[in-house]
Design a protein around this nucleic acid. Sequence first.
DNA 1: TTAGGGTTAG
Length: 652
Amino acid sequence: MRSREIVLKLVGVCRTTKLLTQLHSLTIRTGLRYDTHLAAKLTELYFELLPVQTARKLFDEIPHPSVFTCNRVLQSFCRKKRYEQALSLFSPLFSFEKPDHFTLLFTLKACSALKWLNFGKAIHGLGKKHGNIHSNMFLGSGLIEMYSKCGNMDDALSIFEEYSNPDLVLWTTLVTGYEKNFKPDEALAVFTGMVMAHCIIPDPITLVTVVSACTQLLNLKAGKSVHALVFRMGYESPLPLSNALLNLYAKTGSTFYAGNLFRVMEEKDVISWSCMISCCAHNDAIDRAIRLFDEMIDKGVEPNSVSLISALQACEACCNLDKGRQIHEVALQNGLELDILVSTALIDMYMSCCSPWEAITVFDRMPSKDPVSWFALLCGCVQNGMANKSMQIFCDMIASDIQPDATVMVKILGACSELGVLQLTSCLHNYVIRGGFISNSFVGASLIDCYAKCGCLEEAIKVFESLTDKDVVVWSSMFAGYGIHGQARESIKLFHRMVTDSTVWPNKVTFLSILAACSHAGFVEEGIEFFNIMLNEYQLMPESKHYAIAVDLLGRTGELDKAMCLINQMPSQVGAHVWGALLGACRIHQNAEIGEVAARNLLQLDPDHAGYYILLSNMYADGGKWDDAAELRGSIKERELKKITGQSVVRL
DNA sequence: TTAGGGTTAG
């Protein structure tokens, strides 16, 4: 074998710097350094195995590096996704040699990946200077991709239009550009033009992008026609295309089609499983989502963050703490527990499953936190009634330089209203003003609610009057504020002001606030009138909460039959608070007959609620039915139920 | 030596 072939073979297997140094010396000694092919391979190795500076030095020693050699260096860096290094070598590599089409193509790849538009434009200019871009479709697709990835679809389209006979790849690059730039309508229009006007047959790569565009549009019909096209074309749908279709069905809530496709897929990867789990978790097939996750693990498919997150969401939806803990264990085993997305999903799951301290432990273990993870922690604590802890988290969050947004402010004001501490409300009020949140109507409404619940109605009114753009949320919170303070008259007056002085249209929450105000102040007639206004004048269907207040109002005047009649007319399921209101009224008016109906319904809805048993037993006692009362008290003991006792706090 | 894509997401 000639020495050239031997050296080439050695270069092919060289993986160590020691051998590389020997080969380098050998090529110098044998004069093989002038061999273009060998020089290219060797240069690739310099940049692969040695520090960049050393590699550059050795490269500089090559007497006449060919364009081919320089291109190989660029290509090698692009393959390893070291794009910045590739671009930093562009000038040194091509200081003597003129770049060719290959050079431009590799460079454009790096520009696309880095989204370096100016560099990309310079390469475009260079291509034009060297002439015949139009004869080279490789360069065309590179340029379209570069402009697309930099978000410049107008320029991408201009490049495309320079080609009189674009091939499938050029068309696909343009379709993909539109899809990736969230212009799915344009993507589908270009695709349709390609198929209909230019009779170009798409391949699976084109179809993946087209399905993604349909998914963005939530256009199930168009997506299904692509699926039909795949069938008609007669080829087996490749995995990425099947996954794209699964994703379409998942996002459009088509669990049936997703399940059918998933069942017939011969090859499935973690993405297919993730799509299917996510589809079930988000479309009321919670148990199936959990079963799929277990099946995936049983089959030895390694979970990724997405499959874990979807499975955790399923646990969250059905409050399955045990399963959530098991999935946490799987995340730990796969080294994904501290992935920021997985950790946050764990926090959400633990918070929703009423285990806030486990959520807090996960948060404390996270090596880095972002605004979303802070938000999950804060909201979870508020949701779990940990108002003091929420306040502490809010302070820690600010100390960690995480800027709260309006939603966080609404949550923290909610916690503050629970604490009912006026000084805290004043501090948050200042923060709201300094942070520019006051223009947000939800924040404004929360602040009104907060002041009202802290017992400071005057401040609530001041905030209300200072808001220039009052929407229905703001008005409703002020009605409720008056209601909390027993000022139903003011609440009603303000309602009339809203109707006459503004264009704001009341909603169901508005009426809930007014009805609550009437109930609180004992304004029975007015309350019933508002219930009828809501239904007849504003055509708003009352919900269970509205019915509960109406029943309470009728109950106050002893009109228990009317209340019962109203309940029987309810179009939706009768909630616990409706029966609760009726039971309370029955006790006052000593109507054991209706009271028993109410209590039995209540206990059916919530058999572990000790308070309902006690109410009913008191009612029996009031009516002298001591045996019945004793029986109920007995069942409280038997079930080991305890009434949650009220607590008072005095803050000095 | 060249080109178009990949689904999932707190």
